[in-house]
């Protein structure tokens, strides 16, 4: 079957377009999924940063404590 396909000359455009489109769409979809996961992680970092800011604000006289010997 493979030999038969190889024996054929140029693959017609209307046959090739769905394969080419599928390959490129699959690639960009994969990259988009990766970026979506990474942006989720970025959101978590942002949330944790907010928690830390609150924690730092709640600490009474933290700057004086650090200055003390």
């Amino acid at each position: 079957m493979i030999a038969l396909h190889l024996a054929l000359l140029e693959i017609p455009l209307h046959q090739a377009v769905p394969y080419v489109a599928a390959a490129y769409i699959a690639f960009f979809a994969l990259i988009l999924i990766y970026l979506a996961i990474m942006s989720g992680k970025l959101s978590r970092i942002e949330r944790e940063l907010g928690e830390l800011t609150e924690l730092a604000a709640r600490r009474p006289g933290s700057s004086e404590e650090h200055d003390a010997p």
Binding site: E10, P12, Y19, V20, Y24
Partner: peptide, 15 residues
């Protein structure tokens, strides 16, 4: 387009 593969050869630039 490739003489043998035709438009399908465009996958080559990705793969």
């Amino acid at each position: 387009n490739d003489a043998n593969q035709g438009f399908l050869q465009k996958i080559f630039y990705l793969h």
